[in-house]
């Protein structure tokens, strides 16, 4: 154990501790707690029963009070560790509670009622994961629909994003034509026009096209991303033009050059864009909230926010659904984090 501590505390270069080292480790460990703590707490809470969720102070792990079936009673009764008036300790089941007095029975001898002050008893608890928090939304709510809608929007939008933007990037990086700079500037200028600025007219256009309350109305406005064109173009500029000349000599059509030469060679940049697009589309909220007003079309994000905004919030379901919503992003994070961080550091996009 002390070996481990020594290893962890050892400093590179073997120098002594400086006050900045202490600040560093306080910051890092505090960061670990603040950054991961909330998500961990969420996941832990999502396995608690509604009763456990309502408790204060809350328990760290999901506990429920153990129950026993006692002869002569229809329902299972809560089990308590009680101190009897004569000082003996016993495990009893509570029949009912009147004021501060609890009427209890010994599960072995169900005939005899024992009265115990409620201060003299503590519930017998056991760990239990409330899996129905997860299973019920899948069966009783439209959750599966929301999940499907989100997956559909994410996958379709990402595919279209990749195709449409790579084609444009190809044209803008490998062809000389009038207005190329203009097109490039136009695309870059849209970086200045976020959704929040154009949502009113965009909504009317989407409605006019009959895409209101339609998943395509969520998908289409997002697919021509300037950042997508930009990173793909930057990457394609590094592909030597001689390869395209060679392909032309090889009787390849321009379309073939695009999909048999350029696309495969742009794979790393396409992968980065695909990852970003998946995260963006999965997380989109404001626009789907505007376009989708029919329940069966909600995406996960919209569905979750609407459920959580209801008066009678069913936290046990919300928490579980939030965890499910987090899963794809967490997977992306675990497996592709390196890809994303280098992508951001390189291009400054989000």
């Amino acid at each position: 154990m002390s070996r481990v501590a020594e290893f962890l505390l050892r400093r590179k270069g073997g120098k002594g501790w400086h006050w900045t080292d202490i600040v560093t480790w306080i910051w890092l460990l505090g960061g670990l707690f603040v950054m991961f703590g909330p998500a961990v707490w969420l996941v832990g809470s999502s396995f608690k029963s509604p009763a456990a969720l309502a408790e204060f102070p809350p328990s760290i792990l999901p506990y429920v009070t153990q129950k026993v079936t006692v002869e002569g009673y229809d329902k299972p009764l809560d089990l308590y560790e009680a101190t009897l008036p004569d000082g003996r300790k016993a495990t009893l089941a509570e029949v009912r509670r009147i004021g501060i007095v609890s009427q209890m029975v010994d599960p072995q001898k169900p005939g005899e009622i024992i009265k115990v002050n409620i201060g003299q008893r503590t519930p017998v608890r056991q760990m239990s994961f409330a899996m129905q928090n997860y299973s019920e939304p899948f069966t009783h709510f439209d959750f599966v629909r929301y999940l499907w809608n989100s997956v559909f929007v994410t996958v379709t939008a990402t595919l279209i994003t990749l195709v449409v933007n790579s084609m444009a990037a190809f044209a803008l990086s490998k062809y000389e034509f009038r207005g190329r700079t203009f097109a490039m500037l136009l695309i870059l200028a849209t970086l200045m026009v976020p959704l929040s600025v154009i949502m009113v007219p965009l909504y009317s256009i989407v409605s006019a096209l009959g895409l209101f309350n339609n998943l395509w109305g969520v998908i289409l406005p997002t697919v021509a991303t300037p950042t997508g064109v930009f990173i793909l173009r930057q990457y394609m500029l590094t592909i030597p033009d001689e390869l395209i000349d060679a392909a032309r000599m090889d009787k390849a059509s321009e379309w073939q050059i695009y999909w048999r030469i350029i696309l495969p060679l742009t794979a790393p940049a396409l992968a980065v864009l695909a990852i970003f697009s998946v995260v963006w589309r999965w997380n989109d909220f404001l626009w789907p909230l505007i376009v989708l007003s029919r329940k069966e079309l909600y995406t996960l994000q919209v569905g979750l926010s609407i459920y959580s905004g209801e008066l009678n919030v069913q936290w046990h379901f919300i928490l579980a659904m939030t965890v499910v919503t987090m899963i794809p992003v967490v997977l992306v994070f675990i497996f592709l984090q390196r890809f994303i961080t280098t992508g951001i550091a390189g291009t400054g996009l989000k």
């Binding site: 998500a39 994000q301 979750l304 926010s305 939030t322 987090m326 992003v329």
Partner: peptide, 8 residues
Amino acid sequence: PVLLSPVV
């Protein structure tokens, strides 16, 4: 947290 959706 950067990757988490705003709703989450």
